[in-house]
Write a protein that binds this DNA or RNA. Structure first.
Lengths: 244, 244
DNA sequence: TTTTCCAATATCCTATAGGAATACCTGGAT
DNA sequence: ATCCAGGTATTCCTATAGGATATTGGAAAA
């Protein structure tokens, strides 16, 4: 335990109000943004010291994080960063995504007049960022900020569909999914190479919304299955690289 | 705040090991079993005193409960028993059930050879308890223990399908659903009058499993939609009764 | 009689301290 | 050289205390 995990600026930002939720957000950002090694110990006292708070709100935040699956807990042994998505778990994650997102798409398609405009805006943003990704230097450095921005606009399309379903239960479940998807993207280096295909498939979903709920659900199912195929391919390529 | 919520026997059972999970189980049982009035304050200190523990594990258990939706929290105002499922939320709950359970059924149907035997056993238990419910005195007292037993075997069928899907993400989500369903059954007095229909529809799902995953998913979807219809009817009848 | 304001109480939120269990490291024996 | 044992240190878990905030009750005024 050498240096602190959090930047000094973060500590000053939380001042002295609403500690528990703010600690949760900070730890969540820390887990999402920087790629933390799996299995890293998340010491309650250390986090509390770094954030200048008492261990109690940190403990509450970690309990909340535990239910998201980002951290694991062993009794009397403390919290650790959850292990990366295993291969079989990755298939299960995509299965769950297909079930949830195609279902949410069918529900959201019941009110297309309010859904389509916001999705058009989201897809326009997605397209803009995609073009910037395409125009970035083909090989070599890709700004991490651009990658983060791309992931945000990409997922925003899916998130808006969950919101469009107007179902609090499915919305809660979408959060559980989004954290896993985000974490998967840290381990499996994909999601930027298929930007053009993603935009195309999102467009297909949006067009299918004007046809029927079933068509929209089917389009979403096909989109996620294609993402699954690309992830399989990238995971295999990545495995062969590390094995070299 | 007059008398204690918990029975004296409960306090002695937790002794002095693994407090947080045990407190969680106790509070969960308390919320599930006895029908607590919605909006009842869940005082951290009071629970801690009743259970002879410090407020810290109680606080952690309540954070965990909060994410299940059984309790609500307002900052600087404490925890309360979550309000009963509102009418629109009830429709949303059934929508979510249709999405999740039909999807889980399709996934579980991929391995029918391991799934069908356990479901046959579960359905046999369900049938047995159903007959006991039918033979109980038609009007008047229905033993609360029998009702609880019926709910258990009924939900067990659904739960086994979630387990059969072998998908940890969907399994987690099923817990979020089950708590809501159980709580709904406390407010809307249904689920015992349609025992025969429930068994019949479960049998239809089981038979469809031998046909194809899509057929099984469709059967589950129809089952939940029929439960939804019966709940609507019972809710309307109940509303007319209270309005009288 | 009703409304409003104020004070007292209870509760939550945060901080600090002590006991217990686990992990790590060092020294010795095989 | 390797394995085991013991001690030390870190960390988690629980308990208690103090400050801040919301709720409740009563009293006074309209």
């Amino acid at each position: 335990m050498a240096e602190t995990i959090f930047s000094p600026a973060a500590t000053t930002s939380l001042e002295r109000r609403g500690l528990r939720d703010r600690v949760y957000d900070l730890v969540l950002d820390m887990l999402m943004s920087s790629s933390i090694e799996a299995g890293t110990r998340l010491s309650i006292d250390a986090i509390a010291r770094d954030l200048n708070v008492s261990p109690t709100p940190v403990r509450e935040a970690l309990v909340q994080l535990e239910r998201t699956g980002l951290v694991t807990r062993e009794a009397h042994k403390g919290y650790r960063v959850a292990p990366p998505i295993a291969d079989d778990q990755l298939e299960a994650l995509f299965d769950a995504r297909v079930v949830l997102e195609s279902g949410a798409t069918a529900l959201a398609a019941r009110t297309p007049e309010t859904l389509i405009p916001v999705l058009e805006d989201a897809l326009a943003d997605h397209t803009t960022v995609m073009e910037r990704v395409q125009n970035s230097p083909g090989s070599g450095e890709m700004p991490v900020e651009l990658i983060r921005e791309y992931f945000a606009v990409d997922w925003n399309f899916h998130h808006l569909i969950f919101e469009g379903a107007r179902n609090p239960f499915l919305l809660d479940m979408s959060e559980a999914i989004s954290t896993r998807v985000h974490r998967m993207r840290q381990t499996v280096k994909t999601g930027v190479s298929d930007a053009l295909e993603a935009v195309t498939e999102h467009r297909a979903v949006l067009d299918a919304l004007t046809v029927s709920p079933d068509a929209a659900a089917q389009a979403m199912r096909e989109h996620i299955d294609k993402v699954r195929e690309r992830s399989r391919r990238d995971a295999a390529r990545q495995a062969s690289n590390t094995a070299r």
